[in-house]
Design a protein around this nucleic acid. Structure first.
Lengths: 336, 336
DNA sequence: GCTCCTTCAGAATACGATTTCTATTATAGC
DNA sequence: GCTATAATAGAAATCGTATTCTGAAGGAGC
């Protein structure tokens, strides 16, 4: 069982090892008689080639790396990532690639991912999720010509391949919808200020306000970390305003829900007093009272495009366009 | 940059390639002068060894495989998996291992995981999540002596390493708590009947009933798929009973929440008319109304033990005991 | 019948590290 | 001063597959 290499197959089939390799690679330059003879032995013994040897010889591991850039704690509770991972695994599988997942905790991150996965040639390419607005790593990657795709946005370098959901458009859509529903004082609660998502959605929010001639009031904008407390206290602060906001665009379902929870706790009626809209349309939205209106991110599409771009890069093709936007959709429920 | 192999380092440092390897592996049999000379060049050029070559030569990929056995759709929304993945990645990283994630969709599954990951030697070992009660794959794995650890339970074979949260104990705890709170007609909604989790939790439920001398009534037991509709209709059926149940143990937060939602829809008051308890203590529990009492699964502990057992197996040590149980904890909230 | 292709399979090499084997030098012991 | 023994570094083999190089056999064309 341990002695199952091409050499053994070759011996048993009475051919050379090279022929076995050729048969398995589907090389047309091999006679049908030989082919059948080899395949019979291969099937009988259940031989499967050694991926390690193939990787070394072909200089390809057929392994994609997914690096999640948030701290593990944040990743832990978020169904977004399991959905993303599932979709990427599925898509990669179609092209006969596997997926290696890594997380970038702050300390280890700098070296861990870049050094460990790429320089060691452990993976053929990387999908990076949620990078900060200014990330030195990305420039290094880009300079060294290593295949990688961003999920999320990175402005400074045009040549960087990226896939993103239409955050600007989505926040515009959410804000526009609220305005058309008659809301006058719409607030925005973002995530950590360094993230591109936070900024993009803020921009969509602003643009929507402007397009309706509604003034943008910086007091109605707050930022929160990815945890319940932080979002709740951001909401609490917004409620101090006089008059208080009558609608909130949350950068995330969890943020929107935490905010909504805080508003309810303070006795506000939803959606009568304040309306809420979140992002991601996570399962959460269905279960809360009132159910949360949210912007759906088409995760499978995101995963599909990112994976396909990456594989193109790996295999030497130039994906066009380099920046792809996946449209978002508003899912109306009772909270707005 | 592409020409960065030990041979180049050796040439530049004026030593042999074997010496470079020895220095990098920390071999004590190498003079300090040489060592410094080599390290200087390594540092200057930022050389990192090629993992593919190392894998082939050492017969180790330093890659663990995680195979999630549910269909992708179910995985998609479930925060349990992102938490699990994050914890395993973190733990594996401590031992200098990486993680390769694969999902077992029904069709492809049989071959995909077994063949692709193991036989090809792509990974050094596997962590399998949520296998069915009778899984031929596991027997094959076990026979071939491949290192693998189960998260979940597998009865037929004693020698199989597994980590599980204390499902029987947890369901006992939930049921016991309900009985002590004065509930008389407690129902159980399980997941798919083939899963070990479903059966284990059912057993804990039964045992708790018996220990209080409460009769077990099979009409109060229902099974659902991992989706909202299925759980809701299971709940609907239970509500046809006369008298209807006054408490429900759901095998999963999502199942419990869907059931709770259905009960609310039918005008039952919670917890006055019916109490609910779920499993996993997912973020969902905090946001619903009333908040869901749930059994916490200590996911990091699960991940830590599974990863450590697997690495022991890979490195030739025999983990003891082979079956580890992670205790669960009841998180009391308003729903029960 | 001879040369020239074409077809196809085996031999040999390469991928980049690890490790065993071997050779050199220096040191110790007598 | 000579041999025995470390200590250490280089040479060479190895891991299992892919691929290039080489050669043999067979057919086509004259």
């Amino acid at each position: 069982m341990a002695e199952l290499k091409q050499v053994e197959i070759a011996r048993l089939a009475g051919v050379s090892q090279a022929t076995v390799s050729r048969v398995l690679k589907g090389d047309p330059q091999v006679n049908d008689t030989m082919r059948q003879r080899v395949l019979a032995v291969v099937r009988e013994l259940g031989y499967v080639p050694d991926a390690r040897a193939q990787s070394l010889r072909s200089q390809r591991t057929r392994l994609l790396g997914l690096v999640v850039h948030r701290a593990s704690e944040a990743l832990a509770g978020d169904p977004f990532f399991s959905a993303l991972i599932a979709s990427i695994v599925e898509q990669a599988g179609r092209h006969d690639y596997h997926l290696c997942v890594d997380t970038a905790r702050t300390a280890r991150s700098q070296r861990a991912i870049y050094e460990e996965l790429l320089r060691t040639r452990r993976v053929d390419g990387l999908i990076l999720v949620e990078s900060e607005t200014h990330d030195k790593r990305i420039e290094r990657l880009s300079c060294e010509g290593f295949p990688f795709v961003l999920i999320g946005r990175y402005e400074p370098i045009d040549a960087v391949c990226s896939v993103d959901n239409d955050n600007i458009g989505a926040a515009f859509m959410a804000t526009d919808y609220l305005i058309r529903s008659g809301r006058k004082r719409i607030a925005y609660i973002g995530g950590p200020a360094g993230l591109t998502v936070t900024r993009d959605r803020l921009q969509g929010y602003k643009t929507a306000l402007e397009s309706h001639g509604v003034g943008y009031d910086p007091h109605r904008v707050a930022f929160a970390e990815f945890n319940e407390r932080s979002a709740a206290s951001a909401m609490a602060e917004l409620l101090y305003l006089t008059p208080p906001p009558d609608a909130v665009v949350g950068m995330d379902d969890l943020i929107a829900l935490s905010a909504m929870r805080e508003a309810k706790r303070q006795g506000r009626r939803i959606p009568e007093d304040i309306a809420f809209i979140g992002f991601n349309d996570s399962p959460l939205c269905h279960y809360v009272e009132p159910r949360l209106t949210s912007i759906t991110v088409d995760i499978p599409a995101l995963a599909r495009r990112a994976t396909e771009m990456l594989i193109m890069l790996i295999e030497g093709h130039e994906p066009q366009p380099k920046r792809q936007i996946v449209p978002a959709r508003l899912v109306k429920r009772e909270s707005a």
